[in-house]
């Protein structure tokens, strides 16, 4: 049986693909939002290629952030890195009070305009939720389970790969989800520093007073964000279901759990 929520998402996804494939067919829908015969469909570049480069920027930054953040979380939860644990926690807490848009803006003086600062900002900010979640995941494993792994004769590496990482995976995926959602939003703002992406459509609309542009840019990014977030949530639920962890229904929002950008 297909749940209504899933069905709705499938419909929305299909509509998104249809719109990106042949936007002109939808011109009639958006025309009421324009004045004086201004174009209803963004005409300064292909929506498909903007969407793809937007997604590429996010994917690149999020993958890099995942590798580095999970690596760091592993490091500070090993005996060798334990010295850095308390500080890294504090640093993440402080880092998460920085608005992503400020991080983006501040990376412009360091990197110049274009894709560079956007990717740097996405990467830097994306580290935080992944690191925090991985850290929580790796440091709150049931002690009896971790000890059993050692007691069975697993080496440190086997214990990490066979037990600790798989058990922390739902939380790590949740961190990646947050990072991707934040990244998608920050990349939208990245258009103001000349990164190629869907923000361009919104910015163009705001500059030329063309509401149709603003709305189509906003709706595409909004739908992408919701669908990507859902995808990660399904993945996280899959990895945690088997072991009987209760689904994380309505738990409190805490730092970095979910933050619009």
């Amino acid at each position: 049986m297909i749940r209504p929520g899933l069905l709705l998402r499938l419909v929305v996804f299909t509509a998104l693909i249809a719109f990106l494939a042949m936007p002109d067919r939808f011109a009639g829908l958006l025309a009421p939002l324009t004045d004086n015969g201004a174009p209803a469909i963004y005409n300064q570049g292909s929506l498909v290629s903007l969407t793809l480069s937007h997604l590429f920027t996010v994917a690149l930054a999020t993958s890099a952030a995942t590798i580095v953040a999970v690596g760091l979380a592993i490091f500070v939860t090993r005996p060798a890195g334990a010295e850095f644990l308390a500080l890294s926690r504090a640093a993440v807490n402080i880092g998460q009070t920085f608005p992503p848009v400020a991080v983006l803006a501040l990376s412009v003086p360091a990197m110049g305009f274009g894709e560079g600062p956007t990717r740097l900002a996405l990467f830097l900010y994306g580290l935080l939720p992944i690191f925090e979640n991985s850290l929580v995941g790796l440091s709150t494993l049931p002690p009896a389970v971790v000890e059993s792994a050692s007691a069975m004769g697993m080496t440190g590496r086997q214990r990490l790969l066979k037990v600790e990482l798989p058990l922390a995976m739902p939380l790590i995926i949740e961190g990646i989800r947050l990072s991707a959602v934040i990244g998608l939003a920050t990349a939208t703002i990245g258009s103001t520093v000349a990164a190629k992406g869907l923000g361009e459509v919104i910015v163009a609309g705001l500059q030329s007073n063309n509401l149709a542009f603003v709305v189509q840019g906003g709706v595409i990014t909004g739908i992408l964000a919701v669908l990507i977030s859902d995808g990660f949530q399904i993945l996280a639920r899959r990895t945690s279901k088997r072991r009987g962890a209760s689904p994380q229904a309505s738990r409190p929002a805490t730092d970095g759990q979910q933050a619009p950008v």
């Binding site: 703002i189 919104i202 509401l211 603003v214 990014t221 919701v226 933050a259």
Partner: peptide
């Protein structure tokens, strides 16, 4: 919460 701010700002204009 998931919708990027720029998108939501824009969508609310209409």
């Amino acid at each position: 919460q998931t919708i990027p701010s720029m998108a939501l700002f824009g969508i609310l204009i209409a």
